Simulated assay, not measured.
Amino acid sequence: MKEEQIIAGLKAKDRITTEYLYDTYSKALFGVICRDISNRETAEEVFHDSFLYITRKIQAENIYKGQLYTWMANICRKCANDKNST
């Protein structure tokens, strides 16, 4: 699936696209979080929150080709940093 299709599918709240996004990017995004959070249970919680945020926030974002992963990774980093600061 191309990035444009993923973005359009997420904006349309398509379940198959959301599953594809999870299957394709979850390991990499979880890795981003684990760089900042060593406790696996906490990292999983942050990933869950991040993934929900990504699927909801994409509605208001203008994401262009080549920016999807970077945008998602930045959200994961921010959520991890927020969790570390609490």
Rank of each mutant, 00 (worst) to 15 (best):
R56A: 08
T86P: 09
K65S: 12
T17P: 08
K65R: 10
L52P: 05
A60Q: 06
K11I: 06
A73H: 00
A60W: 08
Y20M: 10
I58E: 02
L68Y: 01
T42L: 06
D23H: 05
V32I: 13
E45S: 11
Y53I: 07
Q67F: 01
N39L: 08
D14C: 09
Q67D: 00
S26L: 00
F51C: 14
N81S: 11
L10R: 09
T42C: 01
S50F: 04
S85H: 12
D36R: 15
E41F: 13
A28W: 07
D23G: 10
M1H: 07
R35E: 07
A43W: 04
A12F: 13
I58F: 05
R40E: 13
D14Q: 14
E45I: 15
A73K: 01
A73R: 04
T70Q: 07
L10M: 15
E3M: 04
N74D: 07
C76I: 03
D36N: 11
T70E: 09
G66A: 06
T24G: 01
K11F: 01
G31Y: 00
I7A: 06
G66Y: 09
I37W: 04
I33H: 14
E41C: 12
C79S: 01
I63A: 06
Q5I: 10
Y69L: 08
L68V: 03
L52M: 11
D36F: 13
I75C: 03
T55S: 08
E3L: 02
D49F: 08
K65N: 08
K83S: 12
Y64T: 05
Q67T: 03
V46P: 02
D36E: 14
K27G: 00
E19C: 06
D23A: 04
